[in-house]
């Protein structure tokens, strides 16, 4: 009787009956896997909407691929001939349907400009953009986290004041201006780093790194300033208002230990969310950066595709980038669970 009235704590807190359900069933029932599945299903309409809208807007732009590719001196007859060859004379929806069914069967089509298959173009260019973005994100964190923590150690101290000024500068400056400034300093005046070009990672790691430095700095430094600002504010907020920090102080921990061992992990939760929102912006930024530094990445191809009204290429790139943004956001949700045990254990926070 008493056993019924007072269930043992283990029964309440752990799904103890797992043995007879089996490992597979409990794996399928795990909250994080269900979340992943749901999010992937939700991605399908998102991806479709993105490609459709892109196709629509590209079509609304004046001029088509034929006239863009042939240039201003082409005769109307030549343009018309190329239009027929590229099926541009067919109605918009027919062309989209053609492309769409191709994608469903795994074929991204070929570039209108040079006939090269879109998937091979992506295969060449994605690694460049990917490397740029990943290295930039890592460098951003490597700058922002120590900077914010040091600044929060003594709010309004000398380090905090200096980094505040730097941060405001970093947030305010336009990336393309910053890029040109870097080129001026490192390539023109000091002549230590190349301003243009690319060597793939597979050819030479050292050369690859040299070409990567300026583009990464262009992205990472302003972003790091932004992140550091937010992180510093959140850390100070945690330090000033959270009870668990009072506990940490009452233990006798130093302010530095309170920050790094207690506040930082809680603050990172907010930062990770913001980063998720920034990823889409980050890929937008690669378009500018790749163009300025002549990196043969996806961003550069995107710009060319828009200029050439090269629908299949543009669609392929947009589809892949949208897919990456969706995946990164999913990844962020999973990371959130790693940082916050309350989410990992499938309970609402209290």
């Amino acid at each position: 009787m008493s056993a019924v009235l007072a269930p043992s704590p283990t029964n309440l807190e752990a799904p103890a009956g797992d043995e007879h359900i089996g490992k597979w069933a409990s794996f399928v029932a795990s909250p994080s896997l269900r979340l992943t599945g749901r999010r992937l299903l939700q991605a399908i309409p998102v991806l479709w909407g993105v490609t459709f809208l892109t196709y629509l807007f590209l079509n609304l732009l004046p001029g088509d691929a034929a006239s863009q590719l042939l240039g201003a001196n082409a005769t109307p007859a030549e343009v018309h001939q190329l239009e027929i060859k590229l099926h541009l004379n067919e109605p918009f929806l027919t062309r989209y349907w053609h492309w769409f069914t191709g994608v469903l069967s795994g074929n991204l089509g070929a570039s209108l400009a040079n006939g090269q298959s879109v998937s091979s173009i992506l295969g060449q260019r994605l690694p460049v953009t990917f490397e740029l973005v990943v290295v930039s994100v890592v460098v951003t964190m490597l700058i922002a986290v120590p900077m914010a923590t040091l600044a929060a150690r003594k709010p309004r101290g000398i380090f905090d004041r200096v980094t505040t000024i730097l941060s405001m500068g970093g947030i305010s400056i336009a990336q393309f201006v910053f890029a040109l400034l870097l080129v001026l300093l490192f390539s023109d005046i000091w002549n230590v780093l190349p301003a243009l070009g690319w060597t793939p990672l597979s050819q030479s790691i050292g050369q690859n790194a040299r070409y990567l430095v300026l583009p990464v700095m262009t992205i990472a430094i302003p972003l790091a300033m932004f992140v550091a600002r937010l992180l510093r504010a959140d850390l100070i907020e945690q330090m000033d208002s959270q009870e668990y920090i009072v506990t940490a102080r009452a233990k006798g921990l130093s302010r530095w230990a309170q920050l790094t061992r207690h506040a930082l992990r809680n603050s990172m939760l907010g930062i990770v969310t913001i980063f998720g929102l920034q990823v889409a912006l980050l890929f937008g930024l690669t378009v500018i950066v790749e163009e300025i530094f002549g990196l043969p990445g996806v961003g550069q191809a995107l710009l060319t595709a828009v200029n050439d009204r090269d629908a299949p290429l543009l669609e392929g790139i947009v589809l892949v980038l949208a897919g990456i943004v969706v995946l990164v956001n999913l990844l962020i949700d999973v990371t959130y669970g790693v940082l916050d045990p309350r989410i990992r254990h499938g309970r609402s926070s209290v």
């Binding site: 668990y244 009072v246 506990t247 009452a250 992990r265 809680n266 045990p341 309350r342």
Partner: peptide, 24 residues
């Protein structure tokens, strides 16, 4: 003071909910 805290003078706080670090 830090050397004294918890070692000599310790405190139990009002709200155990918020006084423990939720991520640890």
């Amino acid at each position: 003071l830090r050397r004294l805290r918890t070692n000599d003078i310790a405190m139990v706080f009002q709200n155990p909910e918020r006084s423990l670090n939720p991520t640890m």
